[in-house]
Nucleic acid binder design. Sequence first.
DNA 1: TCCATATTTCCAGAAATATTGAAATATGGA
DNA 2: TCCATATTTCAATATTTCTGGAAATATGGA
Lengths: 117, 117
Amino acid sequence: MEIEKAIDALSALAQRSRLEVFRLLVRRGPQGMPAGEIAEALVVPANTMSAHLAILSQAGLVRGERRGRSVIYSVDFGGMNEVMTFLMKDCCQGHPELCGAGRQAADCAPARQKRRA
Amino acid sequence: MEIEKAIDALSALAQRSRLEVFRLLVRRGPQGMPAGEIAEALVVPANTMSAHLAILSQAGLVRGERRGRSVIYSVDFGGMNEVMTFLMKDCCQGHPELCGAGRQAADCAPARQKRRA
DNA sequence: TCCATATTTCCAGAAATATTGAAATATGGA
DNA sequence: TCCATATTTCAATATTTCTGGAAATATGGA
């Protein structure tokens, strides 16, 4: 992954409405959610939400698929994964044990969180 | 972690110089690097870099410790971890197997990356 | 104390981003 | 075709962020 792509993804997430959308879709999982419902759920005008969804989509973090009159958005877990990998790549000069890496982060856990830092 | 804190962290990383600093410090590991060397390495004026380091620091992603005349900056891996956890929390309505989660992302691997998405 | 080095703070102009009303486009059904 | 619904695009304004010169602060040594 090139740095420009990573910046796009991080910028996309660095805004309240978009971060909320992303997390909402993470919780939703593969089934996704239509644009209109998303806008309604987060109390944001449809056109504003459309702009936000376009940014997340362009960044490779979500995908939209038209189904009838609606467009169903869902998280692109692969894209998200690439970003996380990019951030932590080659840590500690090749000695990841120095920062306690291994299988930290991205637990994607049901409700309760493990190992609160 | 509250959403405001996550936005701070993501905003901090969503800028070229800061993302480069962060990755540089990730590679460095716990030994860190003085502010001046960082500025020099990335070819950015010292005062501009200072502003960037302050933002990363405020976001809980790096820490600065004064040593003599220098201030040594290093990554706060705990802070980074909190952000990643926040992003993927409660995915797929409690069925993380639906998105292939488990121990993905944040590999922090030496040079080669696993499972290129 | 005085000086050199290292870093940060202050400030202001330039650039990028967010927001939304209005208009345009896409789809399905009568 | 005409209409209602769903979403996106356009355009303009408001807000935030980035950047670096100049000045201030901090530290160590003579």
